[in-house]
Design a protein around this nucleic acid. Structure first.
Length: 713
DNA sequence: CCGGTCGTTGTG
DNA sequence: ACAACGACCGGT
């Protein structure tokens, strides 16, 4: 009989721990249940991942599970096995993945509170305390506080020793306050459901028949649908309905929440089915309710950003990753996994069909789809609008004379226009001609951008701000601005050019909140705004009206990045800009650049993906970059550069011990050597053998205990 | 000697 | 993640 449980916890320790199940809990303690258990000196919420009738022998003494928090498991068996593989693939612990899959309301946290005892109050009143102890007592006079609050107010890092001392004298006491999770929601009749509806005719090219038969057969398969947005949506609708028709379910990923919301239309996903949105911005209660619908099978389709991949659906038959090439699917700081790789993994696990789609695929995915035979191209027809490339070398200001002339003409006709630029603020940086100094972010190794709004310097990495000054902080000289290139400077020039036009900005500084963003787009659609200035932020909206005139300014600045994907970013940002242009012979897209002959710009201007791909794939081949080699970029972060350097060298030594045919670059300071006060050191591994690379990486990284993130490509 | 910090180690 | 422990350090 199963009297022991294997448990994981939501901490960055990828190990399982063993507990005995007391008699009274034995019938309720099932794999996939949330539990509480003593862990070290604490009590923690964890998850049962397996039951067993004996435990591995070891020198530890076994503890008992304290409580089982679920009546029915929060995670199914297949979800457990998927989440284990997902965590292992992306170097996150199993428990962290399970935590991310759970609505936060279901993960009770407990907090330590320090309270002043009556004795403590008495001694305080009698002035019998030393300076520091007095400060602590005064803080606690108004009620119990957490240790971190005390630390912050006292300006010390660790109040532990002092508090312990005071506790042993009976001046304060600590209490652990458990924030109990809400009782499980009764799964009664579904309340007013947020029905997500897919309004497209179930018709489409016969090319989809292959995917449909894969869905019907219930086998894993991987496909790529390349085509414009409306054609892709029709195809998705057909595939979703085919999946629901065989009684299976659908996970649909979009890069951003707003795109998931935009999928709401008319019609339905299918008779008797329902679809829900699931994302982190849903407030506690609502999020739990949607999650429960999925767990209990009251909904058949989930739509959302990367995190929706962890939705608790059973019987998944189709997983769609739309806008496949979007960066928000990347594994990056604060994101536990790569959503594309994760989606494939889950599809394999559930024997589901894996579909990626985009108008402009990433080079890696396209290469793979062509080789694997899963590429489906939906014809987009020849575009009717003109595309013009303007060379801005030798021009003054942001707008070339040729562009100004075109803009004036359009505005004269009353045409709405969109102008895209790649930079926030006014100018990229300021510098002192006398001593050469450039003001940098105090926490990051990067120049601060000058923002006219609020007269401040802003770090575009960590968003910290300093009041701008015209004097050099080093030598007192007069600072000068680098050529103004940001959206604020663009706004200034536009207002000069068209003083009476209604201009609005769509960037993180001017349209910060979600509501504000919706309002700007809405005003633009209604014609209350005639000139829309935007950063890349606009690419994540699928409700931007088509316009007769759109402009991309200086896309070549992205080429300066030390990233082998730089040219892809250039191609895609131009291609997406042309996506805002109405398909009309009188419409025009303009690219203004100082590098008009670059292949990514020429191909984007021609709207020719193959032209771009053929050139880029040759570069990738020549330089031995993905997809011709596997790359692992390991980033170590830490406050102390010395210990970071030591540990990253230790990592390198481990890599070399194990040898193998793997190229190791670094350790070296990352391109941005410091972010938020933490030094960043990078090690890059290159190999043609992906399996060997992953194994080596896993083994060598295992004992290196510092904050690290890994990007595999 | 104490309070504070830092790095290391273990959690069943 | 978090707590505990040991080494070290500077101030009284």
């Amino acid at each position: 009989v199963n009297v022991f449980a294997e448990v994981v916890f939501p901490i960055p320790v990828d190990r399982t721990f063993h507990y005995a199940i007391p008699e009274a809990l034995r019938s309720r303690a099932l794999a996939g249940c949330r539990i509480t258990a003593p862990f070290g000196r604490r009590k923690m919420t964890g998850f049962i991942v397996a039951l067993m009738d004996k435990i591995p022998p070891g020198p530890f003494d076994i503890k008992e599970i304290a409580d089982v928090l679920d009546e029915t498991p929060s995670f199914s068996g297949s979800f457990l096995s998927f989440s284990r593989r997902l965590g292992s693939r992306y170097f996150a612990s199993w428990g962290e993945i399970l935590q991310a899959a759970l609505p936060p309301t279901l993960l009770p946290r407990e907090e330590k509170k320090i309270r002043l005892t009556p004795l403590g109050a008495e001694v305080l009143a009698a002035e019998g305390l030393t300076k520091r102890d007095r400060e602590v007592a005064i803080l606690l006079r108004d009620g119990p506080r957490s240790p971190s609050y005390v630390a912050g107010k006292l300006g010390i890092k660790d109040p532990g020793p002092r508090l312990e001392k005071m506790q042993s004298r009976g001046l304060v006491e600590t209490r652990v306050v458990a924030r109990r999770p809400r009782p499980p929601v009764e799964s009664g009749p579904a309340k007013a459901q947020r029905q997500l509806e897919f309004g497209f005719a179930p018709s489409g090219p016969s090319a989809l028949a292959g995917i449909e038969s894969g869905i019907a057969a219930g086998e894993f398969g991987s496909f790529y649908i390349m085509g414009p947005e409306d054609a892709r949506r029709d195809a998705y609708a057909r595939l979703i309905q085919a999946t629901l028709a065989v009684g299976r379910r659908v996970i649909f990923l979009t890069p951003e929440i707003s795109q998931a919301e935009a999928l709401r239309g008319s019609g339905t996903a299918g008779p008797g089915s329902s679809a829900v949105l699931l994302h982190g911005r849903l407030a506690g209660r609502a999020r739990e309710e949607e999650w429960r619908k999925l767990l209990e099978g009251r909904a058949d389709v989930v739509v959302g950003p990367s995190s929706a991949l962890l939705a608790p659906l059973a019987g998944v038959g189709l997983i769609v990753v739309d806008e496949e090439s979007d960066e928000s699917y990347d594994q990056a700081e604060g994101r536990l996994f790569d959503a594309r790789g994760g989606a494939r993994l889950r599809a394999e696990e559930e024997k589901a069909v894996f579909v990626r789609g985009s108008a402009w695929p990433s080079v890696e995915a396209y290469h793979e789809a062509v080789a694997g035979g899963g590429l489906i191209v939906l014809e987009s027809g020849r575009r009717k609008f003109a595309v013009t490339v303007l060379d801005d070398r030798g021009e003054k200001g942001l707008l070339s004379n040729a562009l100004k002339a075109r803009l004036s003409e359009r505005l004269g006709k009353g045409d709405p226009v969109i102008l895209l630029v790649n930079r926030r603020g006014y100018s990229p940086y300021v510098f002192c001609p006398r001593c050469g100094h450039t003001p940098k972010c105090p926490r990051c190794d990067i120049a601060m951008g000058y923002h006219r709004k609020g007269e401040q310097w802003v770090c575009h990495y960590c968003n910290s701000r300093l009041p701008a000054s015209s004097r050099c902080p080093k030598c007192g000289g007069t600072l000068v601005q680098r050529r103004a290139g940001g959206i604020e400077a663009l706004e200034e020039e536009i207002r000069k050019l068209a003083p009476r036009a209604a201009v609005a900005r769509f960037d993180s500084d001017e349209a910060g909140r979600e509501k504000e963003r919706d309002r700007v787009i809405d005003d633009f659609r209604r014609g209350r705004i005639s000139i829309l200035l935007a950063t890349r932020l606009l690419f994540h909206r699928s409700d931007v009206p088509r316009v007769p005139f759109a402009v991309m300014l200086s896309p070549e600045t992205l080429l300066g990045l030390s990233d082998y994907r730089a040219s892809q970013k250039v191609f895609q940002s131009i291609a997406k800009m042309t996506g805002f242009v109405a398909d009309d012979t009188r419409a025009e897209a303009v690219i203004q650049t100082s590098n008009p002959s670059h292949f990514s710009i020429r191909a984007a201007a021609a709207g020719d993906y193959r032209m771009y791909y053929d050139a880029e794939i040759e570069i990738r081949r020549a330089m031995n970059y993905p997809p011709f080699t596997r790359l692992a970029e390991v980033l170590f972060q830490g406050a102390d550069p010395r210990s970071l350097a030591r540990k990253s060298r230790e990592f390198r030594a481990r890599l070399e011990d194990r040898g193998g045919d793997i190229e190791v670059l670094g350790p070296a300071l990352a391109a941005v050597a410091r972010v938020r006060g933490r030094t960043q050191i990078q090690v890059i591994l290159k190999s043609s053998d992906g399996k060997a690379l992953e194994t080596l990486l896993r083994e060598s990284l295992e004992k290196i205990r510092i904050k690290k993130s890994v990007r595999l490509s």
